[in-house]
């Protein structure tokens, strides 16, 4: 892949993980030496890579993970408000993924199983601290909560897939994952 033409200024990119495992972020780091090319083209805003806590105006937002609780909703909405282009990164963001497999169970059953009935728990109770975000009844793909511009599936998407996707985007091309880069697993 030819390096992307350098845009007039560095693009500002924010990333976050909602109900995900950070695997997609790890895969992002798997673009290896392309990271050096990438930092010439972009700068990071809020991201686990920078530890910036609040998202500011950005060109691109990358969202890993689905929406499983109220905090996810707030963060996702923040990203939508601040990012010109919002991308669903990985299987969980695209269709809920592994966390969404609780969707056929009533929430009460999930929480009671974890906090009350698990062997070894005595007098366990479902946490009710107002600090904690409440879980939604179902885990949702992010496109069911805000408008999403692009989708990059995979569990996780491979480093090359992420690199191809980003270089397309930065160069002003509609990203395409042809030639074996597209995977759902």
């Amino acid at each position: 892949m030819s390096p992307a033409p350098v845009p007039a200024r560095k693009l500002r990119v924010a990333t976050t993980s909602l109900a995900g495992c950070f695997g997609c972020h790890m895969s992002f780091l798997d673009i290896d030496e392309h990271l050096f090319e990438l930092v010439e083209l972009i700068e990071f805003d809020r991201s686990p890579l920078t530890d910036i806590k609040d998202v500011g105006p950005c060109d691109i937002g990358l969202i890993e993970g689905g929406v499983c609780n109220a905090e996810n909703v707030h963060v996702l909405r923040e990203f939508r408000r601040h990012c010109k282009t919002l991308i669903a990164l990985g299987a969980c963001a695209v269709n809920g993924g592994l966390p969404a497999q609780r969707n056929h169970l009533p929430l009460s059953e999930c929480l009671r199983e974890v906090y009350q009935f698990r062997p070894g728990l005595e007098n366990g109770q479902i946490p009710n601290d107002p600090e904690l975000p409440l879980p939604l009844d179902k885990v949702r793909p992010i496109h069911e909560v805000v408008r999403i511009d692009y989708f990059l599936p995979g569990c996780p998407p491979s480093g090359p897939a992420i690199w191809k996707f980003l270089t397309d985007l930065i160069a002003g091309r509609t990203p395409r994952l042809a030639g074996g880069l597209l995977h759902y697993d």
């Binding site: 299987a91 269709n95 993924g97 969404a100 497999q101 994952l177 597209l182 759902y184």
Partner: peptide, 28 residues
Amino acid sequence: NHFCPSCEKSGNCELQALGYEYEMLTPR
């Protein structure tokens, strides 16, 4: 409920393969 990462058929599944063939990036 198609969760490819946890499906034993992943990689051998024709539905998935057609998703790749027709560049389905999202169930929309």
